[in-house]
Structures are given as C-alpha cells and as structure tokens.
Design a protein around this nucleic acid. Structure first.
Lengths: 225, 225
DNA sequence: ATTATTTTGTGATATTCATCACAATGACTA
DNA sequence: TAGTCATTGTGATGAATATCACAAAATAAT
C-alpha cells in the first residue's frame, strides 16, 4: 500500500483541499495500519498524541456511561477519529473500536496542527464538520431519550441502511448487546423487538444479515414507535 | 452602554486574543440588545445570518424533540450562541431563549468570518471550544439516558450550583415543566423528587429559591440515584 | 469432533415512571 | 376585588421495559 497521501483514494473533502506540499508533509508523518474487527483504535483514558484517520471500514465510538457502555455512534470511512479529544482534551474521552476490518492512519498531532494553520479552507471544513457533529448529537440525544425502543431501533437500522451501507440489505456489524448499547436498551429487548419486526414482515433476519423488506413501515415505526 | 468591544467587560478568552484592529471591526458591526426573561434570542427553523454573543445573563438552549421540547443545556454569559448553526447549517437547528434578563450582541456573520480568518489563535480557541462542547454533549447524553430521575435531577441542580451560579443558594430560573424538559422527565416527577429531596434534608425549597443543605448527599444521589 | 464460550430467544416478574385526575396555590389581568 | 390563567402538589393507575432465569444456537478453542 502506498504511503503517499496524494494518492490516497480515501481523501476527505477537507483533505482534498490541501496543496501537494501539505500532502507531502502528511505522507511523511503518518503511520498506516490495518486492524481487525474488534481491535481498539482509540482507548478512553489514554493519552492522545495523534490524529487518527479512518481510511476504510467501520468503527464504533463508545464511552463508559455511569452504568453501561454507551455507543455514541457508528463512524464510517473516510473520516477523522478523535478530533474532539485532540483539541478539547489531552486524554481520550471516548474509545473507538473497529467493528469491521479497518485501515487507519495515525497522523502526528503537531504536523496536523501545522497543516491546519496553513490552510484556511481546511480549517473551515473542519470547523463545519465540528458544527454539524454537534448539531447532530443534539438531535440524536433528544431522539434517544424521548423515543421508545422500537423507534430507536428503527432509527438505528435506517442509519445502517441509508448512511453506513447504503443498501437495504446488510450484515449488522454489532452483537445484540452492542446494538442495545447503541439504542439504550437491554439486550433482551433488542432480541424481542427484532423478532417483532420480523413477524411484522418489516425485516428478514438471517443470523446477522438483515434485509429491510418494508421500509415504509420501518420509517413509520421510527416516527411513531 | 458602550458599543466598543475593546471596552466590553465580558470578553471571552477567545475574544481577548484579538488585536485592537479586529475589535474595532467587531464594534462597528454589531447590534447590542437587552432582552427580558422569556424572550427568544434564536429561533429554531429561522434563517441564521448572525453570530450571537451572550454578554450577560442566562439562556436555555432547546429544540423540538420527537415528542417534547428538549432543553439541551443552560448557557451562561459570556459565551457565543448558535455557532454550530452558523457554520454547520443555514437555518437554526435549535432555539435559545433567555431565562433571565440578558444582554446580547448580534454580530454580522461575514465580519465574524473575516476576523476568524485573520486570527489563528482566535480560530484555535474556537475549535477547542467546539471540541469541548462535543465531548461534553457525549457525556451528558450518556448520563441522561442511563441515569434515573433522581440522578439526573441531582446533576442538574449541581450544575446550577457549581457552574451557573457558583453558589449553593440560588433561584432556579426554570419552571418545573422546563426543569422536566432539561432532565427528560415529566413535570409531576420533578415535583415529587424535589419534595423528596426536601424531606431528606438535601434541599431547602422556598418557591423557586433553592438552598443545597447537604451537598454530599446530593453528589451521592447524582452517582447512585 | 468435542468442549468451552459467547450469543441469542423467550417467559415470568418487578420497577420505574408517565399519565390522568383534581385540588391548591400563586400570579397576572380586567 | 374578583377572576382568569399558569404553576405546583399528590394520589391512583397503567404502560414500557429492565431484570432474572433458563434453554437453545452458534462460534471459537482444544
């Protein structure tokens, strides 16, 4: 695999704004790794000295809540991971774990900072990303706390279909326990509701393979429970 | 009241980094207003063309959840309001409403953007603020969804005491209905739990005046319910 | 292949809270 | 001053869902 960021096929919108010169700097100061499903990419509580770029694959962002592990959201390449920690804190405030095989680049923080300083558009893109994330997290939090289980599960399934996999047929990359931590319920409830969805003809479930058979119903459930 | 930002006693850390020149620019391009408790500062769904600076007072940041109004958090001067919307969206994704009498400055967005472009440290401060907010909102969301009513109410009361008023005796600037929207419960539950806290000798409640009598207990409730 | 170990399905029970209902108080208004 | 309207206190009831308890599959390990 090439180590040249100019040739990286996974450039984000933000990165694609960079000059060749900046990209050279990136290339020379990063470490590229392949990790397996289940491997930790970032660990809550440890020191953060890098910016992490998720080159390919899917990861879960999660943290230790007061009682249970909480999966905040699912991240899909290409994207940066752990940026909030990088600028807002020294130690990682959350963990990121691969839920599929992934490729990641660890970029030296000072190099990243330098590039940021020298590229207004890159900075602007990044600020916009932060802002969108914050807005998104407000809405997500309101949904999670107000909707009931069926609504939240429908939301999560639609997110996988529409945003993560862009297909109504996909392999759920989470166990039911993890899924429960994503939608704030118990593992048992996840199992029960999935069965219900199947019985209602909304889903076809084969192991962890999910086919959305009746998307309109699923959207209705998302809206009304 | 002076309209000169150089003399504004409420400058944020970020703003204090600006050169006099930049501050002049600010001074000449903003609108200063006094608003009353209950007045809208930013309205969800409307177009956003300004950056808003909360000069003095307290405001609630809230949005329409799927079923109820959700108060995301309480903001206290000095701070910027609506920045995420400014950069991440064109229309306001949430509302901000004064919960005490407030003074606000509406700053023209393009001027703000220009100043931002010309001041690296200002930009960095802002990015750090975004990041801290995002981390904070992750944790807040995990707490809200996992803790039970008593724990969440204790958290909110401690937030008022420690961060907003910096005193264990304060006037709650919210009705019980609003308080319920802040901690994700029903108004009735808020009433009941407040009574419980009073009966347990944790609080003294006189109308909306709250005295925290036994902070250790309150912290314990926050941790264990 | 044969154990372990993790993951999943499903019933019975218990708990937390929301909702409904209505009285009481307080605040603003005509 | 009375009268409307918003806020608060408190009981009774019901709904949603967590928890407990196993059994059954499915995966991984030896």
């Amino acid at each position: 695999m090439t180590n040249d960021c100019r040739l990286c096929p996974m450039k984000t919108k933000a990165t694609s704004m960079l000059s060749d010169c900046s990209l050279d700097q990136l290339s020379n100061n990063h470490l590229e790794l392949k990790l397996q499903k289940g491997d930790a990419i970032i660990k809550q509580g440890t020191y953060s000295t890098n910016v992490t770029f998720l080159r390919s694959g899917i990861a879960k962002i999660h943290l230790a809540g007061p009682y249970n592990e909480q999966i905040v959201k699912i991240a899909k390449a290409p994207c940066y991971l752990g940026l909030p920690t990088t600028f807002g804190s020294k130690i990682n405030q959350y963990s990121v774990t691969a839920v599929s095989d992934v490729e990641v680049c660890y970029i030296d923080l000072t190099v990243f900072q330098t590039i940021l300083d020298e590229n207004k558009t890159f900075t602007q893109e990044l600020i916009q990303e932060f802002c969108r994330n914050e807005l998104e997290s407000f809405h997500r939090c309101a949904n999670r706390t107000q909707k009931m289980i069926r609504g939240n599960m429908a939301d999560a399934l639609l997110d996988f279909a529409d945003n993560i996999f862009k297909s109504d047929s996909f392999n759920l990359p989470l166990s039911q326990t993890e899924f429960a931590n994503l939608v704030d319920t118990s593992r048992e409830s996840v199992s029960r509701v999935l069965s219900e969805f199947e019985k209602d003809g909304i889903l076809k479930i084969t192991g962890r393979k999910i086919d959305i058979l009746n998307k309109k119903s699923l959207v209705l459930v998302s809206q009304n429970g």
